[in-house]
């Protein structure tokens, strides 16, 4: 006579560490992507709705131009020669094809276009064709 209970073959999987690790990874990636955006300097961008097609690729280089006309890349102040060096490096990285390099220019809205023009002329001389002017959505959300 067998009085022992039949052993169940079902093993309860402990989900706790898996959930922990997966969600911590999720948080990690979300934070790092957020930090990539936070390296952008706070700039008073022109208030425009911008392009409606949102499916474009991320820009290769983001250049900020602050209220005093100072250029910054990843919150680091740079001179024009340094910008040129970085752009050249990106062109080399793109296999020498300057058309594959896109520059996002985030300029202060009240700044004279002199600074933007100066930079655009240098980029144009380097063969860069694709560029974008950063804007911020109007407060009302309209265009």
């Amino acid at each position: 006579m067998n009085l022992t209970r039949p052993r169940s073959n079902v093993r309860a999987m402990d989900l706790t560490p898996m959930i922990d690790v997966v969600l911590q990874l999720l948080i990690f990636f979300m934070f790092t992507s957020q930090f990539a955006q936070l390296t952008r300097t706070s700039v008073n961008l022109p208030e425009q709705a911008g392009d409606k097609d949102g499916g474009r690729s991320a820009p290769t280089i983001t250049i900020d131009i602050g209220a005093e006309g100072r250029m910054l890349i990843e919150s680091r102040m740079v001179e024009m020669a340094e910008v040129e060096r970085i752009v050249r490096a990106e062109i080399d990285h793109a296999g020498g094809d300057a058309a594959r390099v896109t520059v996002l220019l985030r300029s202060d809205r009240d700044l004279p276009a002199l600074f933007v023009n100066g930079l655009a002329l240098r980029l144009s001389a380097l063969g860069v064709r694709g560029w974008r002017l950063g804007t911020s959505a109007p407060a009302g959300g309209g265009s």
Binding site: Q37, G50, P59, G130, T135, S136
Partner: peptide, 13 residues
């Protein structure tokens, strides 16, 4: 994060 967008255009060569 302020909601940002951009205006794409070509640069004259």
């Amino acid at each position: 994060n302020q909601r940002e967008s951009d205006l794409a255009s070509a640069l004259q060569q």
